[in-house]
Design a protein around this nucleic acid. Structure first.
Lengths: 126, 126
DNA sequence: GATACTGCTATCCTTCCGGATACTGCTACC
DNA sequence: GGTAGCAGTATCCGGAAGGATAGCAGTATC
């Protein structure tokens, strides 16, 4: 495993960095829920707050800034009065789809694997 | 995005859970490095500690327990004196390979994407 | 004029992750 | 007997993530 290509130290730490980058953009309690909420269409700040289980505005604001930096969401200000702000997913956020699907399918099979193992163990103990 | 199949609330939260499961087994500062270190062959506790950038024994012990629970590593005690303990990857840990590859390639392209964006911005400003 | 809505920011507080340091019981070597 | 190695455990600590609460400027509503 992980040995198919012999990597130099530099290459190895670079690919470690890439993995950590990827994990980081999805980690935390809120990023996925926010992305999911926006996947049904654009939402305004308060709408988003309500959509995502009443996340506090401070956290939501912070998360949105990070998602903006990573170019997953776009912030557009409408000059209505009072101003309304809309958040929506960028096309680039679509590149996450394959990754998320992979995480999802692995997570699912893992849960089943661990579950069946623990059932086996209980059967043996009984 | 994420809309191809209409999901019920239950299905949706189940797949969220799967994604979170997957993220969790790889998150944290040490799990990947430990797996990588073990991918070259089994190691004993102290060897592992030295291999992974002098992780403290407490953390190493904790991480190993988690990896054991997830069936990624196997702990074997040899009845030498004093006892020696060997850790090695299970075959099951191989199922991570595809996921890790996906994370790695996405992370790499993302870094390049963000980098090229920021270069563009600087060019415009100049 | 009071209240309520908007999109936030500020302040304080708790909880958790990881780290430093020290220590255990055991054996082997000098 | 003293020192060093092994596989950990125990104790204390700092920083970051996240949460609760309050507040701001601006506008619309009653």
């Amino acid at each position: 495993m992980f040995k198919k290509q012999q990597l130099t130290k530099t290459e190895c730490s670079q690919s470690m960095q890439a993995i950590k980058d990827a994990l980081q953009v999805l980690s935390g309690k809120w990023k996925l829920p926010i992305i999911l909420a926006l996947s049904d269409g654009p939402l305004r700040f308060k709408e988003l707050q309500r959509a995502v289980n009443n996340i506090t505005p401070k956290i939501l604001s912070k998360e949105l800034k990070e998602l903006e930096l990573n170019e997953f969401v776009e912030r557009t200000v409408h000059a209505t009065s009072p101003v309304t702000v809309e958040y929506n997913l960028t096309p680039y956020s679509g590149t996450l789809e394959k990754l998320i699907a992979e995480l999802q399918s692995w997570g699912l099979q893992h849960r089943q694997y661990i579950f069946s193992k623990s059932k086996m163990r209980k059967a043996v103990e009984a």
